[in-house]
Design a protein around this nucleic acid. Structure first.
Length: 560
RNA sequence: CGGGGAGUGGCGCAGUCUGGUAGCGCACCCGGCUGGGGGCCGGGCGGUCGCAGGUUCAAAUCCUGUCUCCCCGACCA
């Protein structure tokens, strides 16, 4: 029984002045969320209903693949985090208890769940396991933003799988693919499963579930049969327009021209006819010269993955000492290993001459310098995959699945005995899902100029009954009865029984965005009808009063 | 962390430059009218102007410090 006259749904006519993202503006205006501090949000009753609906869908799908729900605390002793090596993470909230013991607020639960499994699992007979919980995560984000899109505290479903070997992990991973695909479909979002960076954590595979929308912080690269995070995407570059080859490199004077654009303009060439040199220093102190086409950009994540180690850009003095004047360096004659991007086709290019105010033209990879070939560039609009042009779209990451391997079982000593009595490390996977981001993504994807338009599976209410006319009038009696009938038919119904004008009620209903709005007013009632508006598209139809209670549930079940 | 911006009733804002004891719209409360797209009339409630010092006869306004929030970028195990 939810009557708006006594329900805490504080809608606002105006957007918060500091909000930019659509989901931020609308979720606040619709009375779903309220800010407490930077990156800290309360969920008001209607907003929490949305959150809980997403949670329930996730729970059902996790249970369907054999997940076992549990609950672990948010406050942890620091020790397990020291053992796993994650205590140093800057985002980790650290505090002390009254005795001065170091504590942390959990950003995820690998350490704790692994310890439980380590202490309870003895035998291969105890595996596999899928454990999960819904729990608050705490992260001291450098920059929270856009309402509930990026917060310092949020509820996450995190599941962890424990298997005896890589094949078992693969099976657990595939189960999560199935569950997550279904979750995304059921929530009514547009989504992509994309290849993702496995990071420096040494995992072997990762995918992200992305909901495309304007406020997204990630970029996904799409082509028929292909979807990847821009961080790791590979594609074929458009060919570079190159001048005719030269028999040998020639020096050209380029005084003061230290940018690709400047040199290209001065020589009347396209940027793609130049090579860009990017000196980096690896962990072991070795300098490498990364070379990409002039119109391309080095992708530091791909570069790090290709190198298998972390690195930093070389300092200007290091460049001067080992290569030449910054702005005029190039691979020809360089005294460090050259890592040439795969998108550099054979041909003669303009490069830095490693001398002040000079470039070389007609430099050919292989002939004029030796190199190792790697894919280290960011893909760009115009690139193709399998002959089709790629699209690059912003998206919100709402879920991720990740093969951890033995990253945690090793430091935390999670082992089992196999059939031959040998101790073996447990193979783990971890899988996150954010209900808050799912809700925000749905707002972003389907909002129109009137407000939110929820997918029916995650709307705060299935249907909103709006009654027009005075207290005690016939409209009220009909609406009261309809509200009763819809509730009994199993629809979660919000009843706008406030003493307010029609304009205000319609505006609020469309702002809050329940998939159906039923209007009981004098005009249609005179014909024995009520009006039903489908929120998405705002089309209105009329139904006979007498059968509306039976017809509306069917209508609702047809909605997206 | 770098750059930019903002803190004045619940929300959105003006007032600050040029100091004189706080105002507008919406919301809210009371009464009446109205009743199909945020309606009208009348009467009200509500603010130590983020905080702390200082200057001054007098500070929302000037000075110093500090806290908080937002946006862009960097970062995001």
């Amino acid at each position: 029984m939810t009557r708006l006259s006594s329900y805490f749904l504080p809608t606002e006519r105006e957007a918060p002045s500091d909000a930019e993202a659509i989901s931020h503006i609308l979720m606040v205006r619709a009375g779903l969320i309220r800010q407490v501090g930077s990156g800290l949000w309360s969920w008001l009753p209607a907003g929490w209903r949305v959150h809980q609906r997403v949670v329930q869908i996730v729970r059902e799908e996790m249970n369907a693949i054999g997940g076992q729900e549990m609950l672990m605390p948010v406050l942890h002793p620091a020790d397990p985090w020291r053992r796993s090596g994650r205590y140093a993470i800057e985002e980790l909230f650290k505090l002390k208890d009254r005795r001065g013991a170091d504590m942390v607020l959990a950003m995820t639960h690998e350490e704790i769940v692994t310890l439980h499994v380590a202490s309870a699992v003895r035998s291969y007979r105890d595996l596999p396991l899928i454990l999960y919980h819904f729990q608050v995560k705490e992260r001291d984000e450098p920059r929270p933003r856009a309402g509930v899109l990026r917060t310092r505290e949020f509820v996450m479903k995190d599941s962890y799988t424990f298997d005896r070997d890589p094949a078992g992990l693969e099976a657990a991973y595939q189960k999560h693919v199935v569950a997550y695909d279904r979750i995304m479909d059921r929530c009514g979002l547009e989504w992509y499963r994309v290849e993702a960076d496995v990071g420096m954590m040494g995992g072997s595979a990762a995918h992200e579930y992305m909901a495309p929308c304007q406020a997204g912080e990630n970029e996904v690269v799409l082509a028929p049969g292909y979807a990847a995070n821009l961080e790791v995407a590979r594609a074929d570059a458009q060919p570079a327009p190159l001048p005719p080859p030269l028999d040998a490199p020639e020096v050209v004077e380029t005084p003061g021209l230290t940018t690709v654009e400047g040199v290209a303009n001065a020589l009347g060439l396209a940027s793609a006819a130049l090579l860009k040199a990017y000196p980096v220093v690896l962990d072991d102190g070795a300098m490498k010269l990364v070379v990409v086409r002039g119109d391309h950009r080095v992708n530091e994540i791909k570069l790090g993955n290709a190198l298998g180690t972390s690195f930093r850009p070389a300092h200007p003095d290091e460049i001067s000492r080992q290569l030449g004047p910054p702005g005029f360096i190039g691979p020809a004659g360089a005294d460090v290993e050259v890592l040439l991007d795969e998108a550099v086709d054979p041909g003669g290019y303009v490069t830095g001459a490693n001398q002040p105010d000079r470039h070389l033209r007609g430099v050919q990879p292989g002939r004029d310098f030796n190199y190792r070939s790697l894919d280290v560039r960011s893909v760009e609009p115009g690139d193709t995959v399998g002959g089709s042009q790629i699209r690059i779209e912003p998206a919100i990451e709402v879920g991720n699945i990740f093969k951890l391997g033995t990253r945690y079982s090793e430091p935390l000593d999670a082992k089992y005995l196999d059939e031959s009595g040998q101790e073996q490390l447990i193979w783990m996977g971890c899988y996150g899902f954010g209900p808050a981001r799912t809700a925000a993504a749905a707002v972003e994807q389907y909002a129109d100029e009137h407000g939110i338009s929820w997918p029916r599976a995650i709307a705060p209410f299935d249907v909103e009954v709006v009654v027009l006319g005075k207290e005690g009038g016939e409209e009220r009696a009909v609406a009261d009865r309809l509200y009763q009938e819809l509730s009994e038919a199993g629809l979660q119904t919000l009843y706008d029984d406030r003493d307010a004008g029609p304009g205000e009620k319609f505006a609020d209903a469309e702002l809050v965005g329940c998939p159906l709005r039923v209007t009981v007013g004098r005009r249609a009632l005179a014909e024995g009808q009520v009006e039903v508006q489908v929120r998405r598209g705002r089309e209105v139809q009329t139904l006979p009063v007498d059968t509306a209670g039976q017809d509306i549930p069917g209508l609702w079940s047809e909605l997206p």
